[in-house]
């Protein structure tokens, strides 16, 4: 588009120069291009500088600091210590506990949240009257912060809380629910349920935008053929959503691996480390114990995990042509 600006498109100030001499044209052009370069860089630089400062430098630092003994606040400059932090990390039972917990969380949350979100998307898709109202309702937890959601459910999960009262009511007093968050067997499922409740509306919207890309002609053709509802879903909707599906899988997985806020507000990793997570461990090391180097090592391992898992998912869900 902007490839070769003719002299006619030069700014007014430059046009004042007599255009009769042919030797002046290249010089004008050069001047014009120099100005464009300068203006372009002036517009780019704030964003580029901030991205360098707050994304690239910390990314490089994660690599660098993980091999030092850096502390958050320390009068001494960091000293290179080789792979000490990683040796310590891979000997740490808490870290394996965190890995297992996060794997447990992800394996349940990913299909559950994607499935609930898809069900909701199918229920509110299309132009049925009253459906918009439900879309708004399903979306409300998404605009509620995870911190507030965690506090609210902390209250609902109490031994004498709302959830157990409902359970007692519905079963006519036969079942009395546990103290959800103070029990090693129920703490993680409780966090899972709440996380799905908060996040499903978000992915409902993404499923919906996927549903809208499927051509209505296909459904019309299917209606003429008198196809059943399940067949419509199985042979038109499901294949039509393949791109959306892999996208949703990857985003929920990364979100699940990064589990932190719920644990920080509700359980602080307990009871008995049954809800500790990788990010929670990293924050405890880097912030509470001020060991930036050890926290960087955890962050690096975490990033490697995210990369590997998303690469595997991408490979498994690739377009098979």
């Amino acid at each position: 588009m902007n490839s070769s600006p003719a002299p006619a498109s030069l700014p007014a100030t430059d046009r004042a120069v007599p255009a009769t001499s042919s030797a002046q044209k290249p010089r004008q052009l050069k001047k014009y291009h120099r100005r464009e370069q300068r203006a372009g860089w002036a517009m780019l630089s704030p964003a580029v500088i901030l991205l360098l400062l707050f994304v690239f430098v910390p990314a490089v630092l994660a690599f660098g600091l993980a091999f030092t003994n850096a502390r958050l606040i320390s009068p001494n400059p960091p000293v290179f210590v080789g792979v000490d932090n990683f040796v310590r990390l891979f000997a740490d039972d808490g870290f394996y506990r965190a890995l297992l917990n996060v794997a447990y969380f992800a394996v349940v949350v990913v299909p559950l949240q994607a499935g609930v979100a898809l069900l909701m998307a199918l229920l509110v898709n299309g132009k049925v009257r009253g459906v918009n109202f439900f879309r708004t309702i399903y979306f409300l937890p998404v605009v509620t912060s995870m911190v507030v959601v965690s506090l609210l459910w902390l209250f609902m999960y109490r031994q004498d809380g709302l959830l157990n009262e409902i359970i007692t009511r519905v079963t006519f007093g036969a079942v009395h629910g546990p103290d959800w968050l103070n029990n090693t067997a129920t703490a993680m499922p409780a966090i899972i349920l709440m996380s799905v409740w908060q996040g499903a509306g978000f992915h409902m919207i993404i499923w919906l935008s996927g549903l809208q890309t499927i051509s209505a002609d296909l459904y019309e053709a299917a209606d003429i053929d008198g196809v059943s509802r399940w067949q419509r879903f199985r042979y038109i909707t499901w294949p039509g959503l393949s791109a959306t599906r892999s996208l949703i899988l990857i985003t929920i997985t990364i979100q699940a691996l990064s589990l932190f806020t719920q644990v920080s507000v509700m359980t602080q990793g307990g009871p008995l480390d049954s809800t500790t997570t990788i990010v929670y461990q990293a924050v405890r090391a880097g912030f509470k114990q001020q060991e930036t180097s050890y926290a960087s090592a955890i962050s690096l391992v975490f990033f490697a995990l995210v990369l590997i898992v998303s690469a595997v998912q991408r490979y498994l869900t690739r377009e098979k042509s």
Partner: peptide
Amino acid sequence: ILTLIIATLIVPFETLALPLVWWVN
């Protein structure tokens, strides 16, 4: 620049947060 910008999309903030605390200090 475009490549660099796209590369930053894949990094979750959680992986940068701890080194970033040290860096901003």
